[in-house]
Write a protein that binds this DNA or RNA. Sequence first.
RNA 1: GGGUAGGUGGCAGAGUGGUCAAUUGCACCAGACUGUAAAUCUGGCCUCUUCGGAGUUCGGGGGUUCGAAUCCCUCCCUACCCA
Length: 409
Amino acid sequence: MQGISASAGGPVDRQAEQPCYHMLPSPWVAHWEAGCYSGTMAFTFTLQATDGAARAGLLTTPHGPIETPVFMPVGTQGTVKGLTPEMVRQAGAQIILGNTYHLALRPGDELIRELGGLHRFMNWPGPILTDSGGFQVFSLATQVKITDQGAKFRSHIDGSLLELTPERAVDIQHNLGSDIAMVLDECPPADASPEAMRAAVQRTIRWAERCRQHHSRREQALFAIVQGGLNLSLRAECAHALVALDFPGYALGGFSVGETAEVMHAALPACAALLPEEKPRYLMGVGRPIDLLVGIAAGIDMFDCVMPTRNGRNALAFTADGPLRLRNAQHRRDPSPVEPGCDCYCCRHYSRAYVHHLFAADEMLGPTLLSLHNIAFYLRLMAQARQAIREKRFASFQAACLARWSAAS
RNA sequence: GGGUAGGUGGCAGAGUGGUCAAUUGCACCAGACUGUAAAUCUGGCCUCUUCGGAGUUCGGGGGUUCGAAUCCCUCCCUACCCA
């Protein structure tokens, strides 16, 4: 009976739920508090500090500024799965992703425009980057037919035949109203033949040109995507052609598509160096914490990956001491937080034992808490990296992180 | 006391002479996850193993048979019905 007594023990002294504001640039916080689109901020990128190839900078968008290097949580269908925008913000996110392919299929980009655009529709007043759907053409490849005109494919929702062209991808992203849009690209698998890779690069360049031509929305930045796989001369050819078109930002696509991490790591410095120094560089779809650090060292400014949220839903927590599988029996009676010292909502209030219980009982709060923690971990890692770059000690920061991650396993 | 139906691996529950170390689900134990068709998927789950196999299992005991979880006898136990 004592366990259910209302007055037993008195309330635990909980700190007020303070957002992790210390990680965010203050204009962004002000923008959030205002809760609306000011429309005064143009798209700019300022390089503020370098440390070797690593860079720290400031990106501004109509929906707020972004400190780089930045990690962008993925919100494919207009939601970072399992989290409210408020939780994503409190974890320290400055910008999130949305997806052209998914949102065009459901609920439809026209509908979202009608309802005030994606920011308003999903209640995320901060910056949004939308992916073009090029990756879906690759990942749903069995049912896709690619021609110069565009990609014909079957909807994964109802099987209907649809076509995504460069122009349509731009229109959809216009309707969504994202701050940064991506060109439609062709993303071949790592083991594609040299001919296929070359064809994909040429098509990607032609499509980028068409996107550029078709793009008219001044308050939205359109980024180009460099393909070419692991062939550096193809990458260079692609990059040169795209740079000549003068995009406000450039992405490296076609990584983490089947090649080993070592191979990707080895290729990144040269590929990043192909991109203009004064423009933001975005490594698409990457990756694990170690991949982020390697990318930053190579001169990348922006990253996105489903890993913190997907793995969080699947009971894996990233921590400064390496990954933790909360479904494992060893956590059954562990009273310590997922990551000691972490100031995220999950770590401030719950034990590993409780999170373990949530996953064992298949309760939806488990995936929510670990998604939240993982995003907080990723964003904290990036904040620390930014600081390390500014203090010219990124290499030792990276080495220290790696040593700690590997020591635990 | 009489009758009926049953007793199978942690649980539920298939199998009813050889292709059965035994379908399946759950539970349990691990692993994977990189511009999200993923709150998903994979593997393991009697013992030992040089991973090729080997040895013991289907309530207990006995028997029939070349061969039994499966057929027979007997004992024990469970559920329901009748007294």
